[in-house]
């Protein structure tokens, strides 16, 4: 099977969607002539022309809102926001319009838009380009929030996201763009379920997006010590796949959650709450989690590294839960 980069898989998915459905178009900052801030859209302007690959002004609110309005009127926009920190400039449109339009209109107005954005730290880009805000968006009813962590998901999630009648946000951890992996079968990818990425029986490590690689590395280290960890990739951050979370917990009875968001009010907190509500009696040990430290992401490499989840932190947390 062919290996691709995550970036190539995403680009291929955009190309396929645009070839298959003439209603699909893409807009965002530097997606055309520049080729995309992360080069995801490189070459697409030449292939599809400026009507369908639209460079926008630095007006996150206007072009996201325009995408929402266009989606309300029969086309299928893909809006690219350069990083999730910039998405805060469009938060009014995402939260007050995209997420609410169906509801406020009593079901009449639908917003089938896909909004893609880069997320995550680890590139010494400091405190305005490095945050993981997907957990915030996962708070909002009316949105579906995806976090493709593998090349196969990068290539496969866009199609079903565009077919969804409601707004879908895709968070692409920027460290993943150069990762290579098997293209897989994009046609078999869903946007409803979590996926087991490593089978195990001693402890469940629950994670998503850019933390999946670190978590699998941690599971590898634990295996060297005879600890058999199961790794669950959430894939869909809203709505959460409660069944998959409870199923892995029923198997291992112990759990560490790995979330690049800050701890307070985080997605990891929500998962812990659900486990306590629905799976308390299956637990053999207190829950644990590895999150980003509660600090804006610093520039200096050693400080940034200390702020983010790491395989070592995950191993330590797992050992603590297991008492060995």
């Amino acid at each position: 099977m062919t290996d691709l980069t995550y970036r190539e898989a995403m680009r291929g998915a955009i190309r396929t969607a645009m070839q298959e459905d003439e209603r699909v178009f893409l807009m965002g900052e530097d997606v055309g002539h520049y080729g995309g801030c992360y080069a995801v859209t490189k070459g697409l302007l030449e292939e599809f022309g400026p009507q369908r690959i639209r460079d926008t002004p630095l007006s996150e609110s206007a072009f996201t809102g325009a995408g929402i309005g266009a989606a309300m009127n029969g086309v299928r926009p893909i809006v690219e926001i350069m990083t999730c920190n910039f998405s805060l400039l469009a938060l009014d449109q995402i939260m007050n319009n995209a997420a609410t339009m169906r509801h406020m209109s009593g079901g009449q107005v639908t917003v089938p838009i896909v909004i893609r954005m880069a997320t995550g730290g680890g590139r010494q880009l400091a405190a305005q380009h490095s945050h993981s805000l997907e957990g915030w968006y996962a708070h909002i009813p009316g949105l579906r929030v995806l976090a493709p962590a593998t090349v196969e998901d990068a290539g496969g999630m866009l199609g079903p996201a565009l077919a969804d009648p409601d707004p879908v946000l895709i968070f692409e951890n920027a460290l993943l763009y150069n990762e290579t992996g098997p293209a897989g079968d994009p046609g078999s990818v869903d946007i409803d379920h979590a996926a087991i990425r490593r089978e195990g029986s001693d402890i469940s490590l629950i994670t998503y997006g850019g933390s999946l690689g670190k978590t699998l590395a941690a599971a590898g280290q634990l295996a060297g010590d005879g600890i058999d960890a199961e790794v669950l990739d959430l894939r869909v951050l809203r709505p959460l796949d409660d069944d998959a979370i409870l199923a892995t917990l029923a198997k291992t009875r112990r759990c560490v959650i790995v979330d690049e968001g800050w701890r307070s009010g985080s997605l990891s907190a929500e998962i812990m709450a659900r486990i306590v509500e629905q799976g308390f009696w299956t637990l053999d040990a207190p829950l644990a989690r590895v999150c980003s430290e509660e600090v804006p992401i610093p520039y200096a490499a050693h400080l940034e590294e200390a702020a983010l989840p790491s395989a070592e932190k995950i191993v330590t947390a797992a050992r603590t839960v297991l008492g060995r």
């Binding site: 809102g65 929402i68 309005g69 989606a71 309300m72």
Partner: peptide, 10 residues
């Protein structure tokens, strides 16, 4: 206003 621009864009 952005919504109106989008309706017109479509």
């Amino acid at each position: 206003l952005p919504i109106a621009a989008g309706l017109a864009l479509a």
